[in-house]
Design a protein around this nucleic acid. Structure first.
Length: 577
RNA sequence: UGGGGUGUAGCCAAGUGGUAAGGCAGCGGGUUUUGAUCCCGCCAUGCGGAGGUUCGAACCCUCCCACCCCAGCCA
């Protein structure tokens, strides 16, 4: 075994840093590195014992499927834990039973695992902390820091003020502790209908930060919860739940997206006013925006619910499940997340970057195969009618571990309609009457003529095999200009393919006041029936993406009743002319 | 007009007072039984703008501009 000069020994697991083969530390990594350094320094100047392990968490709400934007967060949180020898929890932030569902929990768990990450311990649920959260709410009431407010939603909105005007105190703000305790108990007992009252933190109605204007801690929802059943009829709001959940779990770095930056003072207010077991810190990063793509659970759900796509895992969806079904590997998604970086600026990443990551991974790992999308019969007039040869080809041009495949070859074969022309200019490197072309992994052939149907369509080509060209160039020195794929007419696989294009024609379907539904690409999928592929494809397992040479990457669909291959993505095509 | 955040190439992104990394895209060339891959080269006298400090500024100071987020009993 050889070790390259930049690698270090396995025992040096500390201090990740920028080296020749890795990017510089991003801002969150720098913060964590500093925290670790500080702890280490403090440890050396005192008797402090024990390790400092960072603890992060990925906290999805189970109200939809995970998408590529979530992948960024997953890679960040799990990646950070991995890099700094810490741990990462998976916790469902399930504080709103109205929008959540067990189906989403199952899907999310599956997606995170598929991406290749392992969470520490059991899967966690915010809902398993409901009793503690409730008791802490009572604690705040008893300290005079929370009150039950009977303002209606509309009234509360008026009292809240605006961006430029301070809010007004609720008339219920000065209720006594005893009354608040009693009222909150009535809420919890189910004595009030939904919307009648809420529990609010008593902070500051004139704060320039609207989140601090006596935010709601608990609201009444007479609704069964997917985890706790009918145990509760009051549910905590995000702000009253998230920080405490983190504190309970000993999260050291609670990472969320930019829009929560305004909530940080509140996050801190609750943990400061409550006897929580730890004091996590919140940090924000810029969420992923991808052009030609929608990354909003609400909008993705709408596409599913209104039938614009076939489900959350439709291959055109930017969901993890959709990408997987399309044939994208977990490694490609991780590579992409690595490429785009982590910052606080909110830019729009070109979807071309994702495509690059996908091609880059597939080029290295996808087994090769030949497939003809638009079959055109070629009769090799100088080849015996009853003969069949068996050609062999590498599973991958530069990976022996992908083995070899077997390609029957006989007098009649299929090539793609696009690979033959009666006449063409010099730029055309495929089969032309009177010219030669190399059949990939087989002979060089030369076309003599073609047969057309009544409407002038070419339906058959007559050609000749140039002898001695298996693995060699023609002896007469006339080399073919190009190479095309082919499939034997007797022994092959027949299947359909689905060619996908971007789901939206607009670069930013999400922006401005346009309706993203209006920008849906009417041609986002093109099905081709009865494509012909090499015989080995009959055994294609689900989960393997192949490169159909000169065409693109394809994988067998995991749902279809028919024999169907989904095109993951085409090959890069720089052919101009 | 309140508060929070962000501005470095078409896009993402390093840079933390010493003279603008890297990736994507693009362009030019080479290899090739995939018009793929791979390899080589090119691609910011310039860092939102204007002043200032300094021998020296993308980095420090001042003012200005643009964009994003916040007025759910969503997260």
């Amino acid at each position: 075994m050889t070790v390259d000069s930049t690698s270090t020994h396995a025992d040096s697991v500390d201090k990740p840093q920028a080296t020749a083969d890795s990017r510089p530390l991003h801002f969150l990594e720098q913060i964590i590195q500093k925290d670790i350094d500080q702890y280490t320094a403090a440890q050396q100047s005192s008797d402090q014992q024990g390790d400092y392990k960072i603890v992060t968490r990925f906290p999805p709400e189970p109200n939809g499927y995970l998408h590529i934007g979530h992948a960024k967060s997953i890679c960040l949180n799990f990646g950070l834990a991995e890099k700094f020898n810490g741990i990462c929890h998976l916790r469902f932030d399930d504080t709103n039973p109205a929008k959540e569902d067990q189906e989403y929990i199952d899907a999310i768990l599956n997606d995170v695992e598929w991406l290749g990450y392992e969470w520490e311990g059991e899967v966690r649920f915010a809902s398993s902390y409901f009793q503690q959260l409730h008791d802490w709410a009572v604690h705040l009431i008893e300290q005079g820091n929370a009150y039950v407010c009977h303002l209606t939603a509309d009234e509360a909105r008026e009292y809240r003020g605006t961006l430029t005007e301070a809010g007004k105190n609720s008339p219920y703000r000065e209720r006594s502790v005893a009354e608040n305790v009693a009222e909150f108990a009535k809420m919890r007992q189910g004595e009030y209908d939904e919307g009648v009252c809420v529990l609010r933190a008593k902070i500051d109605m004139s704060s320039p930060n609207i989140n601090m204007r006596d935010p709601i801690m608990y609201r009444i929802r007479k609704q069964d919860h997917h985890q706790t059943g009918d145990e509760w009829c009051i549910y905590p709001n995000y702000d009253f739940a998230h920080g405490q959940e983190d504190a309970i779990e000993g999260i050291t770095h609670s990472i969320c997206t930019l829009e929560f930056a305004d909530h940080r003072p509140l996050y801190e207010w609750f943990t400061e006013h409550l006897p929580v077991p730890s004091r996590p810190k919140q940090y924000e990063f810029g969420r992923l925006n991808l052009n030609y793509t929608v990354t909003s659970k609400r909008k993705l759900k709408q596409l599913v619910d209104e039938g614009y796509v076939d489900g959350w895992d439709d291959p055109r969806m930017p969901t993890i499940a959709g990408l997987r079904r399309r044939g994208v590997s977990a490694a490609a998604i991780r590579k992409f997340c690595e490429m785009i970086g982590v910052t606080k600026s909110d830019g729009v990443v070109d979807v071309g970057m994702l495509e690059h990551a996908i091609r880059d991974d597939l080029d290295k790992n996808a087994p090769r195969a030949m497939c003809v999308l638009n079959p055109l019969k070629v009769v090799l007039t100088n080849y015996p009618e009853d003969k069949t040869e068996v050609m062999t080809a590498a599973g991958h041009p530069n990976r022996d571990d992908l083995g070899e495949r077997i390609l029957p070859f006989s007098q009649q074969i299929y090539i793609d309609q696009d690979d033959f022309r009666e006449e063409a200019n010099k730029k055309y490197k495929r089969l032309v009457v009177g010219k030669r072309v190399r059949l990939r992994n087989a002979y060089v052939i030369e076309a003599d003529s073609c047969i057309k149907d009544d409407s002038g369509n070419i339906i058959e080509v007559h050609a000749r095999v140039i002898e001695g060209t298996l693995g060699n160039n023609p002896e007469d020195g006339i080399k073919p200009k190009g190479v095309i794929q082919w499939v034997d007419s007797k022994q092959h696989a027949t299947f359909d393919t689905a060619l996908y294009d971007r789901l939206f024609t607009d670069e930013s379907p999400d922006s401005g006041d346009k309706n993203f539904l209006d920008t849906i690409n009417p041609n986002s999928v093109e099905k081709k029936l009865a494509c012909i592929g090499e015989i080995g494809l009959l055994d294609a397992p689900i989960g393997v993406t192949y490169q159909f040479e000169r065409e693109g990457y394809f994988c067998k669909d995991s749902h279809a009743e028919t024999f169907l291959f989904n095109r993951t993505i085409g090959l890069r095509d720089t052919f101009v002319g």
